[in-house]
Design a protein around this nucleic acid. Structure first.
Length: 216
DNA sequence: CTATCGAACAGGCCGAGAGA
DNA sequence: TCTCTCGGCCTGTTCGATAG
């Protein structure tokens, strides 16, 4: 394009359109751009306040600076994506929880075997209880163990059985009460650790009070 | 009083588009 | 192809408001 030259009436010197643009148009456009950014940030703040108020309450949402709004938004979107991924694959999550539960039960058995003088009947009851608890995991709804887990954070309850908190306080207490003593029936000597069926769920037959479910 | 934040502004850099 | 214009983005600076 051909350079266009106009007159600066104050100094009578010609000014190019570029200079005029930089002096007049560009600051105006920059102002509009900042306004657009701020408008969207305000809107985002309102949206995030609505989304997070249900989780954390109104407290803390009153005074948010722009960086906070962006940070909360990023965190919130990460959480949504994580939850969507888990919701899309609930079978894997429950299987992982069951595997962890079985592993824990196995460790309990090993620990009982290692403690001298443990009452065998209590050990039997404990392992039976664990077997029943694992059977309960087959229910489509979250397990009583998981659902009774106290929510120690302000974050919303996740939609899957939390693998990081498989045993509630009450159940742990119950287990502790039932594990006063245990006569080792030597799970270590019964091929523990080498059985590939270790993750097998207890059968309906093992639910009877006469037989003891074992995680191995 | 001081630190922090937001707004405004100036100016540089860069790329795209258009005309000579 | 070169030059000019335009627009977007960024950085640095200044100034006023406000919280601690």
């Amino acid at each position: 394009m051909a350079p266009v030259v106009t007159l600066d009436f104050a100094s009578e010197t010609p000014i190019s359109r570029t200079v005029q643009y930089k002096k007049v148009t560009k600051p105006l456009l920059e102002r509009q751009r900042r306004a657009r950014i701020n408008r969207c940030l305000d809107e985002l703040k309102d949206l995030m306040a609505g989304a997070l108020a249900a989780e954390h309450g109104e407290a803390g949402m009153a005074k948010l600076e722009k960086a906070d709004v962006l940070e909360l938004t990023v965190r919130h979107l990460h959480k949504l994506r994580r939850e969507r991924r888990l919701a899309a694959n609930p079978v894997v999550a429950s299987d992982r929880f069951r595997a962890g539960f079985t592993q824990c039960a196995r460790e309990v058995s090993v620990a009982l075997a290692a403690i001298p003088g443990v009452d065998v009947s209590l050990g039997t009851r404990l392992m039976t209880h664990l077997g029943h608890a694992l059977n309960g995991l087959d229910a489509p709804t979250p397990t009583p163990l998981a659902s009774s887990t106290p929510n120690t954070t302000a974050l919303p309850v996740r939609s899957y059985s939390p693998p990081d908190s498989p045993v509630s306080i009450t159940d742990a207490h119950e287990l502790q009460q039932q594990t006063m003593c245990w006569r080792p029936e030597s799970p270590l000597s019964s091929g523990y650790g080498s059985d590939t069926n270790a993750m097998e769920r207890p059968s309906s037959k093992t639910s009877s009070s006469s037989s003891v479910w074992r995680p191995w």
